[in-house]
Design a protein around this nucleic acid. Sequence first.
DNA 1: TATGAATGAGCGTTCATTCAT
DNA 2: AATGAATGAACGCTCATTCAT
Lengths: 219, 219, 219, 219
Amino acid sequence: MTQTTVHKILDAAVALFAEKGFEEASVRDITSRAGVNLAAINYHFGSRDALVQAVAERYFTPLCRELERRFDDLAADKHAASAEELVEAAMLSMLKAVSRDPQGISLFLGLINYAYQGGQEELRQFLLRRYGTALKRFLVHLRKVMPRLSDDEFIWRCHFLLGTLVLPLAGHEVVCQIEEAYSQTRSNLSLTLHRLVPVLAAGLRAEADMVSRRGEELW
Amino acid sequence: MTQTTVHKILDAAVALFAEKGFEEASVRDITSRAGVNLAAINYHFGSRDALVQAVAERYFTPLCRELERRFDDLAADKHAASAEELVEAAMLSMLKAVSRDPQGISLFLGLINYAYQGGQEELRQFLLRRYGTALKRFLVHLRKVMPRLSDDEFIWRCHFLLGTLVLPLAGHEVVCQIEEAYSQTRSNLSLTLHRLVPVLAAGLRAEADMVSRRGEELW
Amino acid sequence: MTQTTVHKILDAAVALFAEKGFEEASVRDITSRAGVNLAAINYHFGSRDALVQAVAERYFTPLCRELERRFDDLAADKHAASAEELVEAAMLSMLKAVSRDPQGISLFLGLINYAYQGGQEELRQFLLRRYGTALKRFLVHLRKVMPRLSDDEFIWRCHFLLGTLVLPLAGHEVVCQIEEAYSQTRSNLSLTLHRLVPVLAAGLRAEADMVSRRGEELW
Amino acid sequence: MTQTTVHKILDAAVALFAEKGFEEASVRDITSRAGVNLAAINYHFGSRDALVQAVAERYFTPLCRELERRFDDLAADKHAASAEELVEAAMLSMLKAVSRDPQGISLFLGLINYAYQGGQEELRQFLLRRYGTALKRFLVHLRKVMPRLSDDEFIWRCHFLLGTLVLPLAGHEVVCQIEEAYSQTRSNLSLTLHRLVPVLAAGLRAEADMVSRRGEELW
DNA sequence: TATGAATGAGCGTTCATTCAT
DNA sequence: AATGAATGAACGCTCATTCAT
């Protein structure tokens, strides 16, 4: 047998998390699709949560590698990178990192969404501990195209634009189905990503609102 | 007894969905926090899923009313509404609709996020059936500030910008905690919303990419 | 409204007991089909069990009346009644008694079957208390065609032949479906009853085994 | 541990199905009498329904084996088997098949009765799938003593005579109690079976009614 | 006479995990 | 390194019944 039990579990988990979601896919589902013993997940990973973390590593590790490579390339260039170039570099990194699994993108962004949920403190801690430094290095690059934002503005802007990606791509299949039902056309992932670029770039470039001036009076 | 059982259940459900998420809060959690009998949810709502739908109605119904009112006001004005005005109108409508519950915004946007998840076909159907028409009327107004987008571009743009809202606001508490841990400052909802306005407005105004020209060569 | 609540409940109960069985039809099923309040069964009958007893009365009371009439007629005749005549008289009595409900026969015999079940002590007691005397009068007539049987033999013979009726008629629909699946033909109730007559008559006439002689040695 | 969990469950199920009936004995009843975990039934059998099927197999499998053996023996004999011999062979087969459980006969015939009930489609399908072929082989032997019946007559005759067995034997305890209350005597199983033989044999031998001639005029 | 609301008990099933082998 | 068996807790839901109005 050419595939180890651990690999079989990971592949089955990826497939089932994509199909049913991170909460809905049970240890029984995963082990039985993997063709391994029910206890194998706890044996090899320690717990179901640790399996989710292992799946996270499957994407985050190559993602960080790619991001670093591409952003270093951009930085090495003499002319300053444009917002579009950065966005594109980020997207290509992501595509590369998830390319081994058919629904990789949705799964990966679904995982990020999942990590944003209230009850997933442990997963967030794990990701920050494991990828926090790499993330910061990447944010420094990104910061350069938004020099006029305050630090706080900048970090919130990142959350916002991450959301722009996450919701429609984590639920890409669902959105495409709705589109199909209403307009008989069906987008694909590549089309969606190209539609995203200008929106993200515009979001990066947008000036901060004059909060202090207008905010208080209205809301 | 000043509050009916139905109200007690709804309030407890809202609080627990906000605390633990829509999947994690059990019928037992909800009824015991509400101080009512375990069977009361099934008696009054028919099923747990129907309770989630009732919670959805609690926000969507006033939201649609507010949206209609404000957008009609803007349309009645002689000068064309700006992207910022539309975004602000939408936000104020949302704020009004969720204002009765402390974590209303997070809960409401968490619900939208939840509805985007693969397994929630039934909830999506319910929302479309119940609010589809109102939604379309609202989208017609929004369409006017994006006249140069194709219909497909427009609808995807809506999904994108909805995501910009949803992820950081559904997980607002979580994001604020992270912010606090790293920078010893803590944002509040009002601040976040003001930071969002220019990003959303820029997203509305962004031109579509020339997909046909650039897309194929790269990805 | 021309039908009282009590009648509506009885009709709904009869229909549902026939469809789903005596255990499976719930108070909710019955009251909602009857279009009356959930509490109406307990209000008008006292309990669900008492409703079953009321349904029993609906059939047993006219059955006893008919049996008495027809057996008295046979007894009034000068020549002794044959087994076939008695069986036929019993069947016609039963047909008459259940004729008001479409699935009357199956329901009535299903009720007898139900009463034979271990857990239904109370129902048995009720039937014996209410119809025991009438039953004995009828058995006396029947006894005449089996003069050579001992009392014990006779009463067991009655149980046996009741079973001959009950199983295939209580489950008549089911048996017909099986028949249809295998032979593409479908019997009806009238045909089944005519097939039953000679079997029951032969059962009545059969001599008792010489139990004492053969039994002990073998089993 | 001398008995496996599966055996403990089966024994407890058999005992409780006999005591309370197939619907009334709950998973909790069974597991707690068996002294095993509540989840053990679902673990070992998959569902409560599958447990009922396993109980059915416990009796049907040895029954078919015995029936085949005894009927083959009778067929091997030079002289044609009499109705009494066939009935006796069937009864001895049944007795052997259920002999390991105290209330085996009642339980087994109660199961057949249960399978005749409308709502038990799945159980019927299971039995036909599993034992249909064996049953047909057995019916071919039985057919020989009823050569003058049509195929339809024959199959209905089988249902009738099965009922003759089922009702008084599935409820044997109940019938004996009634007998005791009225005549201070108490039959036992062996006695009952000997009383049954001549009735069943007479039922087998009975000629079919001339339905076409008499039926239409009367009912 | 009748009803809507509510209740306590119980249902079959599933969960992630543990343990002895 | 791996597994079949088993577990305790919890799941959403349905039951017949009761009670205040």
